[in-house]
Amino acid sequence: MAVDVAREAGSLRGARLRVSAAFWRRPWLKLAALVGPPVGIYTIVYVGSLAVLLASGFWAVNAFTSETVHTWNLGNFRTIFSTTDLTYWRIIGRTVAMAAAVTVTDAVLAFPLAYFMARLAMPRLRALLFVAVLLPLWSSYLVRIYSWRTILSTSGALNWVLTGLGLPAQHLSGTNWAMWLVFSYIWLPFMVLPVFAAIERIPDSYLEASGDLGARAGRTFRSVMLPLVLPGFVAGSIFTFALTLGDFITPALIGGGPGTAMIGSTVEANVGLNVPFAAALTAVPVAIMGLYLMAAKRLGAFEAL
């Protein structure tokens, strides 16, 4: 009886040993078994759908039935990059400018907060601040958007404060300014966290050494702090820039006034009617992000992630 159990355990162990020996003899097999499934999913689900998306941008749509016609042509891209009708140039330009403005705003807001959290705050306060930064992410995006609509409306909290202070009321609802405010608010946590990580990694000794060598606070900030934090900024900007570039809910609910259309909302408007055109327009932010990531890689952002 005891022998049987031992033998069985032995055969199980033997099988395990044989498998692990096979893996040892063929290192490529081990690698394939380990990496295969995630790479497969990545290739098929992610790259595959992206390829189909890009390919469908070259298709057309039957104007009568609005069904997709699978003939290759550049019509959609000609419409987007038309030299006579600048509508889409304007929309793309506005979207990129908005993404850039939001990124800069978030960087300026995130740095002091992240610095305080990383270097000055006691552990308990730091934990509290972390929760405060992340708390908005726990509530629904839509709830936050609608709260902003109420705040920015003609009879909202913002104007209540402004008129209370004797300042003129603002009519921000529906404008690009409103979108800039809301985007900056919504994506701020995505900037704070990587900047915090970058600041936290700077050894105190660097700053002390800078001081010992006679640098004042400003010089230490410019020559030591900023270069070391830059990858954190770039990493954060990847989020804020990309998320602003593709969003369509904020343009629809916070924007919506004349001259506030963005790439995301224009894609959304075309999806039901002209899928190839929507796909072609989607290729634009993909290309912009591709260029952006290449630049970000040069600045060493991926080491800071």
Partner: peptide
């Protein structure tokens, strides 16, 4: 008409909010 428009509304609830807010 475009410069005169405050908002091109997408959902009925949007327009209701705008009228309520006085926008």
């Amino acid at each position: 008409q475009k410069p005169l428009v405050k908002r091109y509304w997408n959902y009925a609830a949007d327009q209701i909010t705008d009228f309520k807010n006085g926008d």
